[in-house]
Design a protein around this nucleic acid. Structure first.
Length: 122
RNA sequence: AGAGUCAGCUGGGCAAUUGCUGUAGAUAGCUCUUCGUUUAUCGCAUAGCGUUAGAUGAGGAAAUUUAUAGAGGAAAGUCCGGGCUCCAUAGAGCAGAGUGCCAGGUAACGCCUGGGGGGUGAGAACCCACGGCUAGUGCAGCAGAAAAUAAACCGCCAGAUUACUUUCGAGUAUCAGGUAAGGGUGAAAUGGUGCGGUAAGAGCGCACCGCGCGACUGGUAACAGUUCGUGGCAAUGUAAACCCCACUCCGGAGCAAGGCCAAAUAGGGAUCUAAUGAUGCGGCUCGUAUCGGAUCCGGGUAGGCCGCUAGAAAUCUGUGGCGACGCAGAUUGAAGAUGAAUAAUUGUCCUCGACAGAACCCGGCUUAUAGGCUGACUCUUCUU
RNA sequence: AGGCGCGUAACUCAGUUGGUUAGAGUGCUACCAUGACAUGGUAGAAGUCGACAGUUCGAAUCUGUCCGUGCCUA
């Protein structure tokens, strides 16, 4: 049975972690509203970081909502992305999507990343 | 029944599954770690100190699990007022900033309550930066004759040793005057109506109204008055113009304040040390400065911890007060994150869910806000 | 979160303190000059001064409240 928890070990915590992902990102996946960067890490599991800029989503309620949905989706799909440090950036108008649409989009991006990872390992 | 005014409350509910953060407890001693006791081992300068490994006791982290709590009325804007913290600081004044009818409330306020005055509305009610331009200084474009110690453009008026005309009444022009009743300009033109008065007029005089000043009465006061006296009126607007008056603040920053622990790297200070070393100053010795190693010390970055939520607290009761609010008693423990929790999915119900997310904490103000509920009051219509 | 500043022509800025006329440069349009283009010359258009209230006879300017935008503090 897969572990669907989201404890602190599966998050990016310090500024250095983020810096590492930004400066040498190995994998990329994006759509109109979301961009995902990733590098492989030394852990067994994957780790998630979120960058939701105030510039792109102006209202705090909307920012929180987007973060929650992405986090929840990551929680349910993290077993397919093992060994990656991920940073998810929200682009403009990401808050205009409905909850189910946002969910679909992020799921597709997870899948794309998983494929790329498999290809790189082979 | 309809229309409306004010005040208060609420801000989707239920169920299942999967998650997050705090707090309290439990678990196994499988993982990491701190301190102590003890056994073995190895090293050395050997009553000792240190290395490594094991056993054991206590604590912490992480993990698993159970219970429990978990955004707002505005959490927002940052427009005011405080608490708290640090730095600065003899005291007083000037300067500066703010407030501005009166009284009270408050930790304090630019907030609130009650009262006064003015305005809006049929009314319940609502709105008002509401001290002073009779302390001084300034400003008032254009238009208009004149714009602030008033003023004569048109008009009106009697006069003249004047000129012309003449129907001999006077008229026109000119001169030097009087006049603020009428005209037009302007946002604004120096009380209103009537009577008298006059050459024409004029607060020039009078009556009433309005206004100023003083007294009296009521009121803590602002202020009010079918009161009395007095002044012919002197007093245009503007203080969100300078300013005057009264009161308040009066050093500065803000939890990214501030305090504690503290790696790596670089650098600082103190002590010891050896080649009796190297380099610079110097012709050489002496001297002096720098350079090596070890130990200790303090500052301090990354990072971590505290600050952090029990407070001008909430609720209820009693009591004083018209009220804001005060006082007394009882009860309650109610978010505290830090790449930042408080949710997601599914089902279901209804009226189909607005504005919107704590970040040190309070008191206000302002702005945004779907719908629902309660109470008090006003007006209109109908019925009894 | 806390603390500062700025909104004026399409663009870059004056004017705001001290109230009564909105101005400069670049760009744009038309014409002149040239065989043509650039340069040059002449003329012209373009602004509810971020929005809404208030004070005033009168507001880009004074006062208040919102909106947008930028910067600083780890």
């Amino acid at each position: 049975m897969a572990d669907y928890g989201f404890p602190k070990t599966t998050r990016l915590l310090s500024a250095e972690d983020y810096k590492a992902v930004f400066s040498n990102s190995q994998f990329k996946a994006s759509c109109r509203h979301i961009l995902v960067l990733a590098i492989s890490n030394d852990c067994q599991h994957s780790r998630l970081g979120l960058v939701i800029a105030k510039k792109h989503i102006s209202k705090a309620v909307q920012r929180n909502k987007v973060k929650r949905i992405i986090r929840d989706s990551f929680r349910l799909h993290q077993d397919t992305l093992a060994g990656l440090d991920l940073v998810v950036l929200a682009r403009k108008d990401a808050d205009k999507l409905g909850n189910p649409q946002l969910r679909d989009k992020i799921q597709k991006l997870w899948k794309e990343l998983a494929d790329k990872l498999a290809r790189a390992n082979n």
